[in-house]
Design a protein around this nucleic acid. Structure first.
Lengths: 144, 144
DNA sequence: CTGCTGTTTAGAATAGTTATAAAATTGATT
DNA sequence: AATCAATTTTATAACTATTCTAAACAGCAG
């Protein structure tokens, strides 16, 4: 999981705008984390992100990685994916889409959104509103 | 009117058949756990099940509850649901259906199956086969 | 009864995450 | 620049759900 050592000035401004637009105060650590996270669409665990961030000599504590991921989730910058009980994935792509999860390999792959919203809306429990659709298709390797 | 402290002979035979049919050897502990679990369709955590089982004076260790739930999952008797990172739910209803999860209350509610299988099949990653569809609709309470 | 296999158990260990409290940083105000 | 309050970061401790371990147990075949 490599990331580019230094961000271009353009990219940095873009990240700053993104954080500001979501009401996140700027700090050195949040910038580095956002840089790494939004360099591309990815599914990453807190631990992997911690490694990736610090592989650039950035020096951000693990607690901050957790705090920041929590903050980003609350602000709608990333999305949590619960695949199993042992770790939480964070998806840097918050557009409407779903996932294939290969139970044999652990691969997590994006899937185009195809659910018609009204297919679900009419069935919502009384007094509730849709928060988020969470669809994971678990797949396994075909026997060769 | 009365809640069943002890299973009827009929119900017990039914449980035994179920376990046998799924290749699970019978033991006192597995019977008690299955009795509790399959008394009705429910979504339960390992801890709650441990409590429920022992509230009948049954005396089953927590390790056995975990072991047995793991076994039942492998044998297809119950289904794991991953709602958040802090606990795993076990669904005693393995028929095709999905869930509404109320993020405000923690309620987990069944939802009729409505996904057309071929809507997903055609998109499966190369070399993989469907294992299971895992759809959770997260809902929140409407503001009053 | 003896040995074999599978099961249960208490308790220790693990791992991911959250809480705590002190230190550092930031921004605003003078 | 100096000060102050508010926010953020950090190391570390604490917590919790789950898994592991190794010993005890149960049941059956010979």
């Amino acid at each position: 999981m490599e990331t580019n050592i230094s961000q271009s000035r353009q990219q940095q401004q873009c990240i700053d705008k993104l954080l500001n637009a979501h009401g996140v105060n700027l700090t050195r650590q949040r910038r580095v984390i956002a840089d790494t996270l939004f360099a591309r669409d990815q599914h990453v665990t807190a631990d992997k992100l911690f490694e990736a961030v610090n592989n650039n000599g950035a020096k951000v504590s693990k607690a901050t990685v957790y705090n920041t991921l929590g903050l980003f989730v609350r602000k709608g910058l990333v999305r949590e994916i619960f695949i199993d009980a042992t770790r939480t994935f964070y998806d840097s792509n918050t557009s409407r889409h779903h996932h294939f999860y290969n139970v044999d390999t652990g691969d997590l792959i994006d899937m185009k959104e195809r659910l018609a919203p009204h297919f679900i809306d009419q069935d919502l429990p009384d007094g509730t509103a849709m928060d988020m659709v969470d669809l994971v298709i678990r797949v396994k390797n075909k026997a060769p």
